[in-house]
Amino acid sequence: MNEIPGTTFLLNVVFAVSLLATVGGAIIAVLSQRIIRGVCGLALCFIGLAGVYYFLHAPFLALMQILIYVGAVCITIIFAVMLAEPDEAVSDQSSASSKVWAALALIACVALGWGVASLALGGSWTVPAQPLANDGSLRAMGIALLTTYSMAFEVISLVLLVAVLGALAVAHGGRVRS
């Protein structure tokens, strides 16, 4: 695999950058005071996640991650941020009890993450010995979508249709009422 010396090191560096972007972006998305910075952190997190998907042998998913999440979901959230005024008030952040609750939530979430990680690492996963069913390419994925998963494919198209209609109905109804 290593024709060029240092390829492994370079790949490790790229992978570490992806991991850092994912975790750092998620932390920014969750903890920043202003929501618009949170959205930018979310976009950074999703771009890093696309890199992680690339390392997981799924370049199509990396493309879709950037296209759908960064291109559609983040932009939609930015539109909602512009229509509403979501900035959190600073005043109710300062009391002592809220700091205690924040510390408790942090401890509980660290414990949760530690527990889930140790469960996942300690699980007795078995590596499949038989040859893989397909090569995981885009062509194989298209065939699987239209044969094995055709029912789920149809159902999710229905879900998206109903979601679009419901979003239009809810937003429009609010406009008529006020």
Binding site: T22, V23, A26, P86, A120
Partner: peptide, 28 residues
């Protein structure tokens, strides 16, 4: 990485006080 993202997302879901912030945490 998955466990860390789950913990970060749940932390945000608990701590955020606005609905958009909770939606962002749900995405994580």
């Amino acid at each position: 990485l998955a466990a860390a993202l789950l913990a970060i997302g749940i932390l945000g879901f608990v701590r955020r006080r606005t609905l958009i912030g909770m939606l962002i945490s749900g995405e994580v």
